[in-house]
Computed example of a mutant assay.
Amino acid sequence: PSLSLSHSLSLFLFLSLSRSVLSPPASLIVSPDRSQFFEYESVSLSCEVQGNSARWRLKRSTVFGERSDCGRNWGKPQGSSCIVSLIPSHSGVYCCESGSGEHSNAVNITVHGDRVEEEGG
């Protein structure tokens, strides 16, 4: 009987691990759903979490190697979302990160300068 119990336990652990690998515990939702933006556009970023979202934070990594949370020099926390009025220096990789180091999908957001100049030609 103890053999079958340990067998069941390892099967349960395997299934639990597989499930967490297949579906990340959190998803980064970008609204509007794009990765290219113009300066002064506004974007809403939120962490959609299975279970408790309290320990998840929205992080940004820039090309300058700066890594910070929403509300620190960028973005305005609003409920479970982060509202960002974009400028070119906001270009970078955004993702949700838990206190224990788990990550959501990462989204690379690029902010272009003056729209008129680019369209003018």
Results as ranks from 00 to 15, higher is better:
C47F: 00
W56R: 15
S23I: 01
S27V: 04
V30A: 01
P32I: 13
S53H: 09
V49P: 12
S46Q: 03
C47D: 07
S44L: 09
R55G: 03
E39A: 13
R57C: 11
P25D: 12
V49N: 10
S27H: 07
L58R: 10
S31N: 07
A54W: 07
W56G: 13
R57Y: 10
P24D: 06
E41Y: 04
S23P: 07
L28F: 04
R55Q: 07
D33Y: 09
E41A: 00
S53A: 10
A26G: 15
S31G: 03
S42E: 15
S42G: 14
L28W: 04
A54P: 00
S35T: 13
A26W: 13
S42M: 13
R55F: 01
R57A: 07
Q36K: 02
P32V: 12
R55M: 08
R55V: 03
R55T: 05
G51H: 08
S23Q: 07
R34I: 07
F38A: 09
E48Y: 09
A26C: 15
V43N: 08
E41P: 03
P32N: 10
L58I: 01
L28N: 00
S46M: 05
R34W: 09
R55H: 05
E41F: 09
F38G: 09
N52H: 06
K59P: 00
S53Q: 13
A54L: 09
S53P: 12
W56D: 11
E48Q: 13
S53I: 11
S31Y: 06
S31L: 06
S35M: 04
P24C: 06
E39L: 12
I29V: 02
G51M: 14
Q36W: 09
S46G: 10
A54D: 04
L58N: 13
L58K: 10
K59F: 02
L58Q: 09
V49Q: 13
Q50E: 14
Y40M: 13
